[in-house]
Design a protein around this nucleic acid. Structure first.
Length: 206
DNA sequence: AGAGTGATGTTCT
DNA sequence: GAACATCACTCTA
């Protein structure tokens, strides 16, 4: 396998979640032999009624209030671990949820973790479109909370590959019917317009 | 392809 | 006790 692009520095994450979300499409999540290219994310910002931090700091959302560039994981519906990347400055509760990705390397490991039957038929978007699937493919659980992504080791985030300048599509975030109307329709879901490895493709524009 | 539904456990009212 | 940033499976067309 060819050399990976550079790590993104902590300063990359120390901005508004929406800005970070746009820049995350096309970047690489790396763990052991698995390399995933991000194709779909959602921003959860300060003052956002869909944000886990809307009611203040709790034991669950504590990592979101911490320094940028760390992981925030939580258990959704009692079954699925969801991976977020903490954004904005220390003391602000904001993050970007990773919704979908495509496989760059480590196909066999991903298939095994996803409990898919090995073979060409398994390598289709349904394998990795959805936040629970991405975390499962990376082998992540709550033990990865607070893990820094801007340093070598464990779970890492690296820059886009040379020449990868994805066109973006946007749409409303998924599964936040409880939020205020304005936040519910805000186009804070960002995707790679030209990738098939994106969930709920229908609601996207651009 | 689209709608319906059960699984499963933590968090918050 | 209800809600929940979901998934995989089953119908019906």
């Amino acid at each position: 396998m060819s050399a990976l692009p550079r790590h993104l520095p902590q300063a990359f994450f120390a901005r508004d979640a929406l800005e970070v979300a746009r820049d995350l499409i096309g970047t690489l999540l790396v763990r052991d032999d698995v390399v995933l290219r991000l194709t779909e994310v959602e921003a959860y910002r300060e003052g956002d009624s869909a944000n886990h931090c809307r009611a203040g700091k709790t034991a669950r959302n504590a990592p979101m209030w911490g320094p940028p560039g760390h992981a925030y994981l939580y258990l959704c519906y009692g079954l699925h671990h969801l991976l977020n990347l903490v954004t904005d400055r220390d003391g602000v509760g904001a993050a970007v949820l990773v919704r979908s990705a495509e496989i760059v390397a480590g196909h066999d490991t991903v298939l095994a973790r996803r409990r898919a039957v090995p073979g060409p038929a398994a390598l289709r978007p349904a394998l990795l479109t959805g936040p629970g699937k991405v975390a499962q493919a990376l082998g992540l659980d709550l033990a990865w909370n607070d893990h820094p992504l801007y340093r070598r080791g464990g779970l890492e985030l690296r820059a886009r590959r040379p020449g990868d300048e994805p066109a973006l599509a946007t749409g409303p975030r998924v599964g936040i019917d409880y939020a205020d109307p304005a936040d519910r329709v805000a186009p804070w879901r960002i995707a790679d317009r030209d990738s098939r490895w994106v969930s709920v493709r229908k609601a996207l524009v651009g």
